[in-house]
Amino acid sequence: MAALTAPKRTQELAGGPKRFQHPVKATVAIHAGALVILAAGWLRPAREGQGADNAAKAADAATYRCVGIAEQSIVGGAVDGDVVVDTRSGCFLMKNGTAGDVLAKDDVGFPCYVIDDQTVGKTNPNSTRCVAGVVADVTGEGVWVEVSPVIAAALTA
């Protein structure tokens, strides 16, 4: 094989946005457009790890996988999985972190981390955040992040 010496048409696998359905954690409210994670198999709004100390927060965050955005607003039922929600993976505009978590153009192609269900940051302090996805671009509007279960799995492995 040799490198290109002229332009070519590169094919892309068809299919457009990737849509999935996931069971929602009991009583959890998810807003349409929210960045969402699977936490121990149940969908919830993206968040940092929870717990009494950083070790507990890191252990909690290690169970998270960012899968995309919620397609509709929903509240989980009385029992885990009573309700399902449609999610979509793709490249989405998120809010940029602040202070030491601000992402910049030189972060394109690198992972970013969940701060909350609409914000991503550059760092993963004490391993208490899961990977949100890969930075596709940084603009004055925010951070374009490529989010999918495949990216989350690959960057967490």
Rank of each mutant, 00 (worst) to 15 (best):
G97V: 03
T128F: 00
C66V: 09
R65M: 06
P149Y: 12
E146A: 15
D101P: 06
I151L: 12
V102Q: 07
P149G: 13
G41S: 14
T123Y: 11
A56R: 00
A2L: 14
A40V: 06
A58C: 04
G140E: 05
A26H: 02
K57R: 15
I37F: 12
K18E: 14
H31Q: 14
A58V: 02
V67D: 03
Q72Y: 09
A39T: 06
V83K: 01
V108E: 13
R88M: 13
D116F: 07
E146Q: 14
V114E: 04
A34R: 06
H22T: 08
A132R: 02
A46K: 02
V114C: 05
H31P: 10
M1F: 15
L155K: 14
Q118P: 06
R129D: 10
D60L: 01
E71H: 09
K95E: 15
D116N: 13
I151V: 13
G142P: 07
W144K: 04
A55D: 09
T63Q: 05
G142H: 04
T27K: 10
A157Y: 10
A52S: 15
A99G: 07
D106N: 06
A2H: 15
E48P: 01
L35I: 09
T119V: 07
A6I: 09
G100P: 12
C130N: 13
D53P: 07
V79L: 10
T87D: 01
Q21F: 08
I69T: 07
V135E: 00
A70H: 02
A2T: 15
K57G: 02
W144Y: 11
S127G: 13
V143N: 04
Y113W: 11
V145N: 10
A157E: 12
A39F: 04
G121E: 03
G100H: 07
G140D: 04
A55V: 10
Q11Y: 11
K57Y: 05
I37V: 15
V145W: 11
S127Q: 14
G121T: 04
G81S: 01
T128P: 01
V28E: 08
P23W: 08
A99Q: 08
M94K: 08
S148F: 11
A154V: 14
I74T: 05
S148K: 12
G16P: 03
A132M: 04
G133T: 11
V67L: 05
V67G: 01
